[in-house]
């Protein structure tokens, strides 16, 4: 079944306390060289068929529900089968 992925990230200008906490933990764990961490959410939506209408509907639901566009940005993309197989 085709899968549509919605990635939701805090807007660049919005502080991301969780990402900052993860970044802060890295040196303690011996990981160096990471200068920035931002934490977001990934939603995987399965739909029977990829159509313009279905994608428009998912865009609408991402904008109104999955993301709060006051503080977050989102990207909707169809996951390619090859990408799925590479997992």
């Amino acid at each position: 079944m085709p899968r549509v992925v919605v990635d939701v990230m805090p807007k660049p200008e919005i502080l991301d306390p969780q990402g900052k906490a993860v970044l802060g933990a890295l040196p303690r764990l011996g990981f160096t060289g990471v200068t920035e961490v931002r934490q977001g959410k990934r939603f995987e939506l399965e739909i029977p068929e990829v159509t313009d209408e279905a994608l428009a509907q998912i865009d609408k639901l991402a904008e109104t529900f999955l993301a709060n566009t006051v503080i977050e940005n989102y990207v909707v993309r169809v996951e390619e089968p090859a990408e799925e197989m590479a997992k």
Binding site: I14, V70, I71
Partner: peptide, 17 residues
């Protein structure tokens, strides 16, 4: 109220978590 857009802005995790 902010999620409903009856009030502007948003509420995030406390800065100290």
């Amino acid at each position: 109220l902010v999620e409903s857009h009856l009030l502007p802005g948003g509420l995030l995790r406390n800065d100290h978590l």
